[in-house]
Amino acid sequence: MNLNEYTLERFANQHKTIKNYIDDLPPEAIYNRLNPDKFSIHETIAYLTRYQHIFIDRLNRITNEVNPYFEIYKPETDPDFAFTCAKTTGSLLHEMYRLRGNLCLMLEEMPSEHYARVATHAVLGRMAVNQWTEFFLLHESSQQFKIFKLAGSFWSMQVEKHPDIIYLPRLTNYIDELAV
């Protein structure tokens, strides 16, 4: 059983909405933590980018091993996460787009019999490739909602600090490092 066309469509495009959420934000809104205990927008994007590498590794293991077991991904225990966070937001988005293209090809070219292969997640249990893909999309969607809320919270906090100032989006006649 292959992935259905709607799942592939979501997989190919869902991540592209992140740019819309952050387009008009100044760097301090992207790089600073609004809550010291929670990731910033930039760190969340780094997390999503790094998680694509994790998902590629998991798919490779699922297709090459019998029922591999995966712990919950925790960025604080991943030595490569700090390196990923050190990149600019623009370079992270470019990397995310590139990796997603690779992942789409991987899923589209996967032999039909591999879609029945399973792996076990520490919390979610045993899942086939199509379920792992849905989990990936739901997890990514949850992180995107956090970015959406953080962007809105930044503007709300700015209005509270300066209620007499009207905030307008930045001019768009600059070279957009986030453009694809």
Rank of each mutant, 00 (worst) to 15 (best):
F135M: 05
F83A: 12
P26S: 10
L124D: 14
K146Y: 12
Y47E: 10
N130V: 08
E177Q: 07
A179H: 10
Y73S: 00
N2I: 08
R126E: 15
K161N: 12
H53M: 08
S112V: 04
I72G: 00
I72P: 00
D78H: 00
I147Q: 12
D57N: 05
C85Q: 12
T17S: 13
R170C: 10
T133D: 10
E177K: 03
E109A: 07
G152L: 10
M127E: 14
F83R: 10
K87Q: 15
D57P: 00
F55M: 05
L3K: 08
R117W: 05
F148T: 06
H15A: 13
M106V: 06
S156W: 09
V180F: 15
V180R: 13
A29H: 08
M1R: 07
V159E: 14
N20P: 04
P79E: 00
L107N: 02
T172H: 14
F39M: 07
L8N: 07
E5Y: 13
I22R: 00
E95T: 03
R61W: 09
L171Q: 13
Y6W: 12
K74C: 00
E5W: 05
S156E: 11
K38V: 05
K16N: 13
Q158K: 15
A116K: 03
S91V: 11
L48H: 02
L103A: 06
G125H: 06
Q14T: 08
G101W: 00
N20H: 09
S91Q: 10
D176A: 08
I56T: 08
L25G: 03
Q131R: 09
K16Q: 14
T88R: 05
L8G: 05
S91H: 10
N20D: 14
F154D: 09
P26W: 10
A179D: 13
Y31T: 04
K74W: 01
N32L: 05
L8F: 07
Y97W: 15
E76R: 01
G152W: 08
D80W: 04
P111F: 02
I72F: 00
P163H: 05
P79D: 00
E71Y: 00
R170V: 09
I22A: 01
E5V: 06
K16Y: 15
R33W: 14
V118M: 02
M127S: 08
L8S: 12
R170Q: 12
F81C: 01
F136G: 02
I22G: 03
R126A: 08
L59C: 00
L59A: 01
M1A: 15
F136T: 02
T84E: 15
C104E: 13
W132V: 01
N2P: 09
